[in-house]
Design a binder for these strands. Structure first.
Length: 462
RNA sequence: GGCGACAUAGCCAAGCGGUAAGGCAGAGGUCUGCAAAAUCUCCAUCCCCGGUUCAAAUCCGGGUGUCGCCUCCA
């Protein structure tokens, strides 16, 4: 298993801290708004990382934070004329809903920042006590100059950074790169009591606390979007290094950005679609396919046309599956040698820094095998089984029954079958006008008739 | 100014020194009363210029173009 480690900028052989166990942390949202389709890429990707490790036999402990106190939440609360907690609650609930809708499995632990306030304060206190942090008028800053390794993760040399150009200089800081650990509260702002007075945590510390709480002081993989490398992850790592001398995580994985028409999407540029909006319009599996069809580290350009294409592609998987009874597909043992070989290929793709694009190509190989009329019935069935099995590793086919069985009341089905029988009769009588009328009328209702050598079947089309 | 990524068919996209996966679209065949569906087949020499090598989309040098980070951000 090789994966690209941001820290070293190379693919490295993955060696877990403990055999067959993965301790994984991926940054979750700050809940001040609905998350957008770009965020969805990160959540979806690390969902696949988790699924794949489980598939190859790891016991995975997956932790994802929900940051529910932050300047932006306070701003949003002012805007919505609500308490910051109500805002955080609302968007945290929406986050969970949207993730479920996207087919993202629940993390093992999903702590919230406000639940670990004593631990956050204790951590900052330790940093102050060891001279890695200092207080100025109720604010506490991390002293980046106290840590020789600062900048290592992101490959930045702090002295070479442009300072003062786009960042207002903060005269209380000893060094421009120093970052806020604790922020004194202004009147009417939420606060927690601390040794430095009333205030709230800055960004970064909550992730250190929440990850270490569940995963230990140094764990296997830490992930998130590429933009988090600096400053967020650099600053998280700095705190961990300062405390224990060990990096927070040994492997750092970062997914590339999503662009809209070639331009960066971001909350501040306001050119974003929420995942919620896109989910209203398109199938979750189409969105998953769209993301996984490109390597996770590359930038990806979002267009509606590509989602539509993806949806058609996913359709082909289901067309291969629907020839078989669902119960017969869930058998564990698969014997067809070609299928087993493809499973090995699938693993070697995924073992190569999660090459999901190649992995998907293998799903299509299986699709073709499952439909190949020249191979034996057993082999076709096995191919469909393998397709289902490997597709699930990528998070597809979580509820195949809903897509495979036509989702409509039995009465409607019976009526369609009835119309179909009338048409079959008309065709037997060579009454083409009548049979074509039935076909066209049903099509207008979204029911497509497919004539085959063994008779006519129907499908619901959207 | 510092650091980094990318450039493959109409579109999306793999490829990591041995002669271009896969998907969408398109073309053709079979099937069909016709159509659809299904199925089979076909469809690129890899931004440009040099170099290394028996061999390069893949390595090196130089261009050109696009994008990102250095500021809240997945």
């Amino acid at each position: 298993m090789k994966l690209y480690n941001t820290r070293s900028r190379t693919k490295e052989e993955f060696v877990p801290l403990q055999e067959d166990q993965l301790r994984l942390y991926a940054c979750g949202p700050t809940v001040y708004n609905y998350f957008h389709i770009g965020n969805a890429r990160a959540f979806l990707f690390f969902d696949v990382v988790r699924r794949y490790f489980e598939y190859i036999g790891y016991k995975v402990t997956y932790v994802q934070n929900i940051t529910d106190i932050d300047d932006k939440i306070i701003e949003q609360a002012t805007e919505e004329n609500q308490d910051f907690q109500e805002v955080a609650q609302k968007y945290a609930a929406a986050f969970l809903e949207d993730c479920a809708h996207l087919g993202i499995g629940a993390p093992t632990h999903q702590p919230r920042a406000t639940q670990v306030m004593p631990e956050i304060i204790a951590l900052i206190k330790k940093l102050v006590d060891t001279n890695h942090a200092y207080e100025v008028d109720g604010d506490v800053y991390f002293a980046t100059t106290s840590l020789p390794e600062y900048g290592q993760l992101s490959g930045k040399k702090i002295d070479e950074q442009k300072t003062g150009a786009r960042v207002a200089e903060n005269m209380s800081k000893r060094h421009p790169a120093d970052f806020t650990l604790w922020k004194a509260s202004k009147p009417n702002e939420p606060f927690w009591s601390s040794p430095w007075g009333d205030g709230r945590p800055g960004w970064h510390t909550e992730c250190v606390v929440m990850s270490q709480n569940y995963l230990g002081e140094s764990f296997d993989i830490h992930g998130g979007g590429i933009d988090l490398v600096f400053p967020h992850h650099e600053n998280e790592n700095a705190q961990a290094m300062a405390l224990s001398g060990k990096p927070l995580a040994r492997y750092w994985m970062h997914n590339g950005f999503l662009n809209i028409d070639g331009e960066k999407m971001s909350k501040s540029l306001k050119n974003f679609f929420t995942a919620r909006d896109i989910l209203d319009e398109y199938d979750a599996e189409a969105i998953r396919f769209f993301f996984l069809s490109k390597h996770y580290r590359s930038p990806i350009d979002f267009t509606r046309e590509l989602i539509v294409e993806s949806d058609k592609a996913v359709d082909n998987f289901y067309k291969a599956l629907e020839a078989f009874e669902l119960d017969s597909l869930n058998v564990k043992e698969i014997r067809c040698p070609e299928c087993l070989r493809l499973e090995e290929d699938f693993r070697s793709c995924m073992d190569d820094d999660f090459n999901t694009a190649r992995a998907i190509a293998i799903l299509f190989d299986l699709t073709r095998l499952a439909k190949n009329s020249e191979s034996s019935a057993e082999n076709r069935l096995d191919a469909a089984r393998m397709l289902l099995k490997l597709g699930k590793v990528l998070g597809f086919f979580q509820h195949p029954e809903t897509r495979l069985s036509k989702q409509m009341p039995d009465l409607s089905k019976a009526l369609i079958e009835l119309m179909l029988s009338y048409r079959t009769q008309a065709r037997a009588e060579k009454n083409w006008a009548k049979s074509d009328q039935i076909r066209d009328d049903l099509k207008a209702l979204g029911i497509e008739i497919k004539d085959g050598p063994t008779g006519s079947t129907w499908d619901q089309r959207n």
